[in-house]
């Protein structure tokens, strides 16, 4: 009984929430609030007739391209900032401001510059995902425990050895966590781009079904992208825990 308690409670909690959704939909609380069953049915219809797959092919394109660019550039810039005081002074403030500022406000400007195509959408994903990747990477590099760097020097490591064999591996858990947060922000960017710039992919399903008042399909599309993001990020987190199991411990202070 105790062993299954947490599963049972998760199930119970899902049952309560989805059940109240169903009841609220049946009353109905609003003309535009479909029941859970209607939404799930619409989801299967969209999935089985292939609409969903085509849509995700479209939606994931700017997301994947944008996240790849951000990861590549972001880790590069982050390492430079972390390793050099000059670049830290020069670039850190820019990314700190980007991190706290509502960058979504730049979207209308990006549309003016790059039009309404893929480039703009990739850009939106990049400006959302990049700051957290840069700041995590540079912070991780800077916070490498001083004693293992000193150890590398005492045992005659070259600068290159110390960066490649000590600083990078020591920083990689935090860099990876930064990538995960970057992906999370990238999802926001991709969805925002589709809702604000041009409705393609999942954004198109959402906008179109809203315009014809097919609310179950609209809710199904929204639910699917939220679930996709949550599941994907969860998987990333598990990979992270698996890869870096134990490596955050092992210092004398623990």
């Amino acid at each position: 009984m105790i062993r299954y308690r947490s599963y049972l409670l998760t199930f119970l909690s899902a049952f309560i929430v989805l059940g109240s959704w169903e009841i609220a939909g049946r009353i109905p609380v609003s003309y535009s609030f479909p029941t859970f069953v209607e939404t799930i049915t619409a989801f299967w219809v969209l999935l089985l007739d292939g609409t969903m797959f085509v849509a995700y092919g479209e939606t994931l394109k700017p997301l994947v391209v944008g996240v790849l660019i951000s990861a590549f550039l972001g880790i590069g810039i982050g390492l430079t900032i972390g390793l050099s005081k000059k670049f830290d002074w020069l670039l850190s403030p820019v990314f700190v401001v980007m991190q706290t500022a509502p960058l979504a406000a730049l979207i209308p400007l990006l549309v003016m510059i790059y039009g309404i195509g893929l480039t703009s959408k990739v850009f939106v994903v990049c400006i959302m995902a990049m700051p957290v990747i840069v700041l995590n990477t540079s912070g991780a590099v800077r916070n490498t425990p001083a004693s293992i760097i000193e150890m590398g020097q005492a045992f005659l490591g070259t600068k290159r050895d110390i960066i490649l064999k000590i600083i990078l591996p020591a920083a990689s858990p935090i860099i990876f966590a930064g990538l995960r947060l970057g992906v999370s922000a990238g999802f926001i960017g991709a969805i925002l781009a589709e809702l604000k710039i041009t409705p393609t992919g999942v954004g198109d399903i959402i906008s179109y079904s809203r315009s014809i008042a097919d609310y179950p399909s609209m809710y199904a599309a929204i639910m699917s992208i939220i679930l996709l993001a949550v599941i994907f990020l969860n998987v990333l987190e598990r990979i992270e825990n698996f890869l870096f199991k134990g490596t955050r411990q092992g210092y004398a202070s623990e």
Binding site: M151, F155, I166, P169, A170, Q249, G250, S253
Partner: peptide, 13 residues
């Protein structure tokens, strides 16, 4: 010279 560190300075990975 070789150094032995107070906090061991082992590579945790």
């Amino acid at each position: 010279r070789a150094f032995v560190f107070q906090d061991f300075a082992l590579l945790p990975w």
